[in-house]
């Protein structure tokens, strides 16, 4: 039996142990928001949050990330030659990450490490040294539909340890081998606690009322889904603000820009958004996605048709509901997908 039990008021031992190797971060309330913050002791943790406003993708894929550096001086012998900087900072542990956000990391592994010979080194370096300790959802948020998109409130994909909240104590299940060392000296969980956790999972699954149906999207040809008549009506209210792509835990499109200041120069990547006309604008002035409908459609096609096509069925959506919660014009991803699924 691998499951361990730890009381919430006895968590400091585990946190100390983790803290020796990892910088610890967890969701904490900040006014009306829930944000990822550095934590140091059990008392810093919050047990009543639904999920963080921003997804944790920035830990592995920062909004601005330095890729290369160079000496901005053509006169110098090493000048103008781009070089890889030393990887920064110590490993991090994300404590109380929600299963949907860990699943998003597992999806992004398929994107950033699609070529095992030449992976995206910046993603891989941080992913390899980040420990994910997930907190299962007992009270899923109203916009959630994770059970429709290959995920669930107690899912373990992408996690190192799954933690299920039993009230005054946590049931810990190791998922990856590297997690086991941190919980090996904790008490074994009782049959009763394991059963309780399983009941909580059933209950949470039952609470998720949001559904998306994708059978026709998946079965249909790319052109048929692309040319669906519903896009016209669905896109009308979208203002192409890009809020959805900013909050989305799996949106990963980026731009690359160079910056200089005196003799210091660097190449950075920044989060980008397919909602912007600049995203696809050719230098000639031609724009293959020049219209709002084309950009609106691209985001959904990418997540629900193109990514599964490329990534052996993996969806570019984990059902966290952030895009629906944050959209300023109330576009609901569940509504969009269900409409497109109707032939």
């Amino acid at each position: 039996m691998l499951e361990k039990i730890v009381f919430k008021d006895k968590l400091d031992g585990l946190l100390d142990k983790l803290g020796r190797e990892y910088g610890l971060f967890a969701p904490v309330k900040d006014g009306i928001h829930t944000v990822w913050t550095a934590v140091f002791k059990a008392g810093d943790l919050d047990w009543n949050f639904t999920n963080t406003d921003l997804s944790p993708k920035g830990f592995l894929f920062p909004q601005t990330e330095c890729m290369l550096v160079f000496e901005n001086d053509p006169g110098s012998t090493e000048g103008m030659i781009l070089k890889q900087p030393e990887p920064e900072d110590r490993p991090k542990a994300l404590f109380n990450i929600r299963p949907c956000d860990a699943k998003a990391f597992a999806v992004l592994d398929l994107v950033f490490e699609q070529d095992p010979e030449k992976p995206d080194v910046y993603w891989k370096e941080k992913r390899g040294k980040t420990l994910l300790l997930g907190l299962a959802c007992n009270n899923p948020c109203p916009a959630c539909f994770c059970t429709s998109v290959n995920c669930g409130p107690h899912h373990t994909d992408g996690l190192d340890i799954l933690m299920q909240d039993l009230g005054d104590r946590l049931l810990l299940t190791p998922v990856s081998p590297r997690a086991e060392g941190f919980i090996s000296d904790l008490d074994h969980a009782s049959e009763k606690d394991i059963k309780l956790a399983s009941e909580l999972e059933q209950k949470a699954v039952g609470m998720i009322k949001g559904r998306v149906n994708m059978e026709n999207i998946q079965a249909g040809s790319i052109i048929d889904v692309f040319e669906h008549s519903a896009w016209e009506r669905l896109h009308e209210s979208c203002i192409n603000c890009g809020t959805c792509t900013f909050y989305c835990p799996t949106c990963h499109c980026f731009d690359i820009q160079d910056e200089t200041s005196g003799v210091y120069g660097r190449r950075v990547r920044n989060w980008d958004t397919c909602m912007s006309p600049l995203f696809t604008l050719h230098a000639s002035g031609h724009n293959p996605r020049g219209g709002k409908l084309a950009r609106f459609r691209q985001r959904f096609m990418h997540k629900f048709k193109y990514m599964p096509f490329r990534l052996k069925g993996a969806l570019g959506c984990v059902g966290c509901g952030r895009c629906t919660q944050k959209c300023p014009v109330n576009i609901d991803v569940r509504h969009v997908v269900n409409k497109i699924n109707n032939n």
Binding site: D115, D120, D255, I256
Partner: peptide, 19 residues
């Protein structure tokens, strides 16, 4: 074909034609 590109390795997301 050509489309606007950045990464050149199928990650940054902008040069797609369908999938």
């Amino acid at each position: 074909m050509e489309n606007r590109m950045k990464c050149g390795i199928g990650i940054c997301g902008r040069c797609n034609v369908g999938p």
